[in-house]
Design a protein around this nucleic acid. Structure first.
Lengths: 324, 324
DNA sequence: GGGCCATCTTGAATTCACGTCACAAATGAT
DNA sequence: ATCATTTGTGACGTGAATTCAAGATGGCCC
């Protein structure tokens, strides 16, 4: 077998024990080995180094000068190894964590949790990067990314944080100026708010006689992130399709009005925390963060209903809580 | 098989190469291994440490924070190991050397060589301890001992440096006062110079009709070393049996006179450099010293002859040379 | 957008280093 | 002098690590 290397740390370990305990037999016992094994190992080491480390009779041990020097160095090296491994393996989450999130979800659900997270993990420092464009986790040097919508097949591992439905909305002022679309086909005559980056689905889905058809208003403005799109829509620029978890409060407050809601297919978009998988155990701080998110974020598939008073209500959406 | 320890240095070596060369395959090639071996090893390491060290796709490597820290520490540790081993294995003789010698031989044959030895090996420092009493090499922390006479069976290794015959001598003044012994039996009426420590042979051997008989003058003075015994004898205290390499010049100069020389059995006493054997290779400085002694000390079995003028001569004894 | 190449990963067979066992030698003490 | 303890040596067996072969994944180029 192509021997990569001799076990130099093991040799040093045994040698140090021999010196510390003052004998091969004692060292062997402390290592759960036989004296002959220790004898052979020390002989191997000496042969490999080309010098004798210890003069020995059946009664006494006497370090040579080389042995003395090697002993001290080995002691130090073993301590260094232990420290290096212990630090790398530190069970308490610590170090730096880079989180990448889409903007709406990050702002509304993640950021409110961060103070508590950092209180619970004082040894973790955080970078929060909010972008809606898809990023390469590794290129962005991010530990975790939070994405909405379908995940491309990759070796990323996803942990579901919640689900949200979508709604096509516009501002009351826009609807007053351009009228309320009654059918998907009407959208062709409307002004749309779209995206600067490609999305997984191009058109907006609508129910039509047990089937799904797509429609899309011609975009007159495009945003690079959901929050900008929301602002544009709030400003009466046009019609947009946004996530309920994002614009729920706007709808309830009447700042945005759902349209074609009776044709909404009710498709859900999952929100996931994704991280690189299949490459050894996760660092403690990454796991801690994901567990924290999964534990504290509960978005129970919110639904849109019209109240008796004609006002829209969001039901089932439990917001992130950083209280308690 | 009770695996004493994982090969922590080997793991670090592989990991460092992976980082340095930027890939598993490159590291595998540089280590004469297969990529799969490297992959498994890194996975093992990560599992053992309980954290991931490197995020990897088939194209890119991205160190985690733990990986970064571990990489730097590992690099340092590997350098330390190399240095420790290289220093221990240093091929050029260096360090401290403790030599133990019997006094006559040390003074007359070893010490004259030392200036040259130290000139040739400037990195060696020397301790010279002269004692005639037998010492335990290890207890005396000596690397080499030079002893005359038969060696006790032990695991010491002996290298022959020379041979010398013995002679029974006394000073002219003593002989003038007490007469010259003609037979071994006469010694019983003489005054002897003996030893404070036990010697391997108790009596002095003499030839008598193809057989060896022993005789010993009653000691009136005892010395702890050969040089003291010589001084006592030169002072006319009594009769002593001393090595020719030691008192040769005294005999030639007439300061000491051989007696019973016609009955001298001519037994030889070997002079050896002894060192602890069977325990791994010798340190370079020890080997250098022994080789140096063996090369420069030539004592060719000196013999005692009476010249035509009645004066005694020493033949065949080449003295140590520190010249040239 | 699809095929190709390079890379990493996984599972099963293989192998060689390392440790165990039993015995011998040596040392110091009783 | 004998005994007890410790180190050293040779033969043997184990099993952990490596290799081989095949499968996945990602990037690149056309």
């Amino acid at each position: 077998m192509a021997r990569i290397d001799t076990n130099r740390s093991g040799e040093m370990d045994v040698f140090v024990r021999v010196v510390d305990l003052g004998g091969f037999t004692a060292a062997a016992n402390s290592l759960r080995q036989t004296p002959s094994g220790v004898s052979k190992l020390v002989s191997r080491l000496e042969t490999r180094l080309g010098t004798r480390l210890v003069n020995r009779t059946t009664r006494k041990l006497q370090l040579t000068e080389e042995g003395q020097a090697f002993y001290q160095r080995a002691q130090r090296i073993l301590a260094d190894i232990d420290e290096a491994e212990r630090e790398a393996a530190s069970c308490v989450p610590r170090g730096h964590l880079t989180v990448n999130s889409n903007i709406p979800f990050g702002m509304l659900h993640v950021m409110p949790l961060l103070p508590r997270f950092m209180r619970e993990h004082p040894d973790i420092t955080l970078d929060i990067v909010l972008t809606d464009t898809l990023v390469d986790l590794m290129q962005a040097r991010a530990d975790v990314a939070i994405r909405a919508g379908p995940l491309g097949a990759s070796r990323l591992i996803a942990r579901k944080l919640g689900t949200s439905r979508m709604a096509v909305v516009a501002s009351p002022s826009y609807l007053a100026r351009h009228g309320i679309p009654k059918t998907p086909a009407d959208l062709a005559g409307h002004r749309g708010v779209g995206w600067t980056f490609p999305r997984s689905i191009r058109g907006w889905p609508f129910r039509r006689a047990e089937k799904i058809e797509e429609a899309l208003p011609p975009p007159v403005a495009r945003a690079s992130d959901g929050e900008t799109a929301r602002q544009l829509t709030l400003g009466g620029i046009g019609v947009a399709r946004l996530a309920l978890f994002h614009i729920g409060p706007d709808i309830e407050a009447g700042r945005l009005v759902p349209v074609l809601q009776n044709l909404n297919p009710g498709d859900r978009e999952d929100i996931h925390a994704v991280y690189v998988g299949h490459a050894g155990p996760l660092p403690a701080r990454v796991r801690a963060f994901i567990d924290f998110l999964a534990q504290h974020i509960r978005i129970g598939d919110p639904a849109l209903r019209r109240g008796a008073d004609g006002k829209w209500k969001i039901a089932g959406d439990k917001r992130a809580r950083d209280d308690k």
